[in-house]
């Protein structure tokens, strides 16, 4: 197929048709990203349990709805199961002294089996919007966008409130400076556990919504969730940096994290529309996230590097050598 033939085969209308679905998914993943934001940005811990909790949220929601539980109650219980998973990660980390990143990996690993048990040992469970009353579905995309945005707004409002309270401030202090927090009487272990639990609760909420949206829960639906969450957080922050430069209201910043999720999924829709291999999506995402994570480091290194002073001195030497010749 020639390049021209490839270009003419791309249908702009199809892209427009697919974008709303991407927005809906982006909003749901944006809620997940808000959970990641709590651990990654506020607590300064990379929590990998989220890959497991996302699927747990989906599995619990779908199984409960299949069992006749109303969808809102099902999703609430999914959130609680996510909180419990985060609690376990927190205890592994604080009570048993396992490094946070490993504690998350252990929880995620264990959740694979637990999620299978939840789904009756099936790798996936379908749930039809025809038979059950669901909160969101890809069948009704405008509604799904409204519901996703609604959930995101409520979560942002609650986070804005909570992280302004004494307890929320203590969590932020724990993420910012452990020694100072302890000296100010903050129980840092307790704060870490609370933050991990809340974060995973949000991730499970997102997983529960996603399972309903796509019409099934899958044992692998959370694979790489942490990377997508990070991508959303980073995209959101880059936009904030570019547009506003400096300080910004916390709620607005959280809004941009959700927007980061939406942009990520819009890009995914475009990539798929361009008929690129969807199996390469994870590679593409990983590269993008790696680049953005590296930018702050490389920026500081540019200002402060051995190579720079070496170059500078070489220049001076060359100039001096030239001067001697002239004289």
């Amino acid at each position: 197929m020639s390049f021209v033939a490839y270009l003419t085969s791309l249908n702009p209308l199809k892209l427009l048709g697919n974008l709303p679905g991407g927005v809906a998914q982006g909003l749901i993943w944006g809620i997940m990203a808000l959970g990641v934001y709590i651990t990654f940005r506020l607590l300064d811990v990379a929590d990998l349990s989220v890959d497991g909790t996302f699927a747990t949220g989906g599995a619990v929601t779908v199984m409960l709805i299949l069992a006749g539980v109303p969808a809102p109650a099902a999703i609430l219980i999914a959130v609680l199961s996510g909180i419990l998973a985060g609690f376990v990660t927190g205890l592994l980390h604080t009570l048993l002294g396992i490094p946070a990143i490993l504690a998350g990996i252990l929880t995620q690993f264990a959740l694979y089996s637990i999620n299978l048990h939840i789904m009756g040992m099936a790798p996936n469970k379908a749930i039809s919007v025809d038979k059950y009353s669901l909160i969101v579905s890809s069948r009704y995309i405008p509604l799904a966008i409204a519901v996703g945005a609604g959930f995101a707004l409520v979560v942002i409002a609650v986070m804005y409130w909570y992280f302004g309270t004494e307890q929320g401030s203590a969590i932020r202090a724990t993420g910012a400076n452990l020694a100072m927090s302890k000296a100010q009487g903050i129980n840092i272990n307790k704060m870490k556990v609370i933050a991990l639990a809340l974060s995973n609760g949000l991730v499970a909420l997102s997983g529960g919504l996603m399972a309903q949206y796509q019409g099934f829960a899958d044992i692998n639906m959370g694979r790489g969730a942490i990377v997508i969450g990070l991508a959303a957080v980073i995209i959101g922050e880059v936009i904030v940096e570019a547009l506003f430069k400096k300080r910004l209201n916390f709620a607005v910043r959280l809004g941009f994290v959700v927007l980061g999720g939406v942009i990520y999924y819009a890009v995914v829709v475009v990539v798929l529309w361009m008929k690129l291999n969807s199996n390469d999506l994870k590679l593409f995402t990983a590269v993008v996230v790696a680049i953005f994570l590296a930018v702050p480091y490389l920026k500081s290194k540019k200002k402060n590097s051995f190579a720079k002073i070496a170059k500078q001195n070489a220049k001076l030497r060359a100039a001096a050598g030239k001067g001697e010749k002239d004289a």
Partner: peptide, 19 residues
């Protein structure tokens, strides 16, 4: 915020407003 954290030294961190 730093001052507010210190002002609550030795007290329970509740859900009241942080500052």
């Amino acid at each position: 915020e730093n001052m507010a954290l210190a002002y609550r030294r030795g007290q329970r961190r509740t859900l009241r407003w942080g500052v």
